[in-house]
Design a protein around this nucleic acid. Structure first.
Lengths: 126, 126
DNA sequence: CTGTATCCTCGTGGATACTG
DNA sequence: CAGTATCCACGAGGATACAG
C-alpha cells in the first residue's frame, strides 16, 4: 500500500471525479452522450462559465473527455467521453448505487433512533 | 438523474471517501483490520492529531467505522470498519485498480508524445 | 495515550464584467 | 456561442500548545 496520499492509487482515481461539478458533468456525458458547452451550462443551472471551463479542461487533461471545436460562426464546441474515460463508468455506477442505498441506510437509522427504542446493544453512549 | 449536486447519489458516496486522509485510513482499516489511534498516527506520519480525529469522527458519523473506547489507563481506543462500511470495499478496490492503470496510461501517453511522433489522428491541436 | 483549543494559510470555487 | 479576466469569500486543512 502506498503510504503517501499523493501517490495512493485510490487518490489518483479520486482526482478524476472530485470537483464540485465533475460528477454531474461525467454523468451527463456518460448517460446522454455528446453535449456542447451551452447545453452543459443549461443542465447545470448554478455553474458559472468559468467553473464549467475549468472542470472541463481538467477532465480533458486527464484524457477523460474530448473537446471538439467546429470552426463555424457562431462557434460550436462539443464535449464527449473518450473511450478511456468510459472505463470510469463502472466506478461511477457503483458509487451511484451505493449512494442510493446509503440514503436508505441513514433513513432507517434515524427512524430507529427517533422511535426512542433503547437500543439493546447499549452502544448509544457519547 | 439528480440535477442538484448536493443530492446526486454519486456525490453522496463520494462524501464518504473524500478528505485528505480518509482514503488511506479506510485502506488501512480494510486491509489490516482494527487499529488504535496511535497506530494510525504512526501509519500516517504527516497527519496531525486534530485531522486524524476529525476524519475519524466523520467516518464514524457515517457509520463507516466503529469507535471502541476501553476504559483503561492509559486510555485505549480502537477503530475498525463496520460491516456496513465494508460495502465500500468494491468501490475502493475498483478505484485502486483504475488508479494503477491510469498511471500506466499517462506514462504511455507521454512516451508517445516525447517521441515526437506526429500522431496520425491529427487531433494534437490547441 | 487520545484527544481539544486557537489561530492561521491557502486553494477551490463564486461574482461580475468583458472578448473573439 | 464559448469562453477570459479580475477580484473575492469561505472553509478545509495545518501549526502549535495544552488537557484528561
Amino acid at each position: 500500500m502506498q503510504k503517501n496520499p499523493e501517490q495512493c492509487q485510490v487518490v489518483v482515481a479520486l482526482d478524476m471525479i472530485v470537483g464540485k461539478w465533475k460528477p454531474m458533468i461525467l454523468l451527463y456525458l456518460m448517460n446522454e452522450g455528446t453535449k456542447r458547452f451551452s447545453e452543459l451550462k443549461r443542465l447545470l443551472p448554478d455553474i458559472t462559465p468559468r467553473m464549467l471551463t475549468l472542470q472541463l479542461r481538467e477532465l480533458e487533461a486527464h484524457d477523460i473527455i474530448e473537446r471538439k471545436v467546429y470552426p463555424e460562426v457562431p462557434p460550436r464546441v462539443e464535449y464527449s467521453m473518450t473511450e478511456y474515460g468510459r472505463t470510469l463508468e463502472p466506478i461511477l455506477e457503483a458509487m451511484h448505487e451505493w449512494g442510493k442505498a446509503h440514503l436508505e441506510h441513514m433513513k432507517a437509522k434515524h427512524a430507529r433512533q427517533s422511535e426512542g427504542v433503547a437500543d439493546p446493544s447499549g452502544k448509544s453512549g457519547r
